[in-house]
C-alpha cells in the first residue's frame, strides 16, 4: 500500500511540476508576442537642449546653419555669413537679434580687439580656450564678429570678417579637430545691423579691467557654444 501511495505521489508531483513548467513557459511565450502595456521609457542620447532654445532662437540659428554653410558638408561648403546675409535671413530687428543671445551671457564670452585690429591678445586666447573646451552637449559653436559703430560699411565688413577668421584660425590650432568646419558658425556684422549697446560690457569678456562703452564692445567677437538641437 505504502509503495502504491509513494508511486502515486511521485507521479502526481512530477506531473504537477511538468504542468507548472509548461504553464510558465507558455505564459512567457504569450507575453513575448503581446506588446508590453507599460513599457519602461528609455531616454535616447542626444545633443543638449536647454530652456533658451526657443522656436524663434532656433529659427534664426537654423537659418545661420543653412545660409552660412554649416549644414553643408564637403570642400565646397561656404563658410560664414556676410552682414547682408544676416539681415536677410534673420528677418528680425537689431534688438531682437541681440536679445536672442542674452541667455548665452554666461555660457559665452566677448573677445575684444584693439581698434582697427584683428589680432587676439593673450586674454582673448585664454577666454576662447575656456569657452571652447566647455562644449558639453552642444553641437555648434557660434562666433558673431563685429567691427565698429562708426566708419564705412565696407571697411567694417572687411575688419569684422578678419576678426571672425582670427577666432576660427585660433580654434583650428587649439582643437586640431578635422571636423571643426561642421561645428563653428561664423557671422560677421558691419555697423548696419545688430550693434551692441554698452550694457553688453557687463558680459564676460577678455578685457574685464578696461574701460568699456558702446564703441569698444563692438570691436569684438561674441563666442558661445549653443545648447540647442538644430
Amino acid at each position: 500500500m505504502a509503495g502504491i501511495v509513494g508511486l502515486a505521489a511521485g507521479i502526481l508531483l512530477t506531473a504537477g511540476s511538468v504542468l507548472a513548467v509548461r504553464s510558465w513557459t507558455s505564459t512567457a511565450a504569450q507575453h513575448l508576442i503581446e506588446p508590453e502595456k507599460e513599457k519602461p521609457k528609455v531616454a535616447v542620447a542626444d545633443q543638449a537642449e536647454v530652456a533658451y532654445c526657443t522656436p524663434q532662437f532656433k529659427q534664426v540659428l537654423e537659418r545661420v546653419l543653412h545660409s552660412c554653410g554649416l549644414a553643408a558638408e564637403g570642400e565646397g561648403a561656404r563658410r560664414g555669413c556676410k552682414p547682408s546675409d544676416v539681415k536677410t535671413f534673420a528677418s528680425i530687428s537689431d534688438d531682437d537679434f541681440n536679445a536672442l543671445f542674452t541667455p548665452l551671457k554666461d555660457r559665452g564670452g566677448v573677445v575684444l580687439f584693439d581698434e582697427g585690429k584683428d589680432d587676439l591678445d593673450d586674454n582673448a586666447k585664454k577666454l576662447l580656450e575656456e569657452r571652447w573646451f566647455a562644449r558639453k552637449g552642444a553641437r555648434y559653436f557660434f562666433v558673431v564678429a563685429r567691427a565698429s559703430k562708426t566708419g564705412s560699411p565696407s571697411k567694417n565688413n572687411a575688419l569684422s570678417h578678419r576678426r571672425a577668421n582670427s577666432v576660427m584660425f585660433f580654434l583650428k590650432q587649439l582643437s586640431n579637430d578635422p571636423e571643426i568646419e561642421q561645428k563653428v558658425g561664423l557671422l560677421w556684422l558691419g555697423n548696419e545691423f545688430a550693434q551692441l549697446s554698452k550694457e553688453y560690457c557687463s558680459w564676460p569678456n577678455s578685457r574685464m579691467n578696461e574701460k568699456c562703452d558702446d564703441e569698444p564692445i563692438n570691436r569684438s567677437a561674441f563666442v558661445s557654444w549653443v545648447d540647442c538641437r538644430l
Partner: peptide, 22 residues
C-alpha cells in the same frame, strides 16, 4: 533548478513511502 525540481519530486515521494511503510 529544473533538475532539482524533478529530483525533489522523486525524493518527496520516496520519503512519503518510507514514512508510510515504517
Amino acid at each position: 533548478s529544473l533538475f532539482g525540481l524533478g529530483a525533489f519530486c522523486f525524493f518527496a515521494a520516496f520519503a512519503l513511502y518510507l514514512l508510510l511503510a515504517g
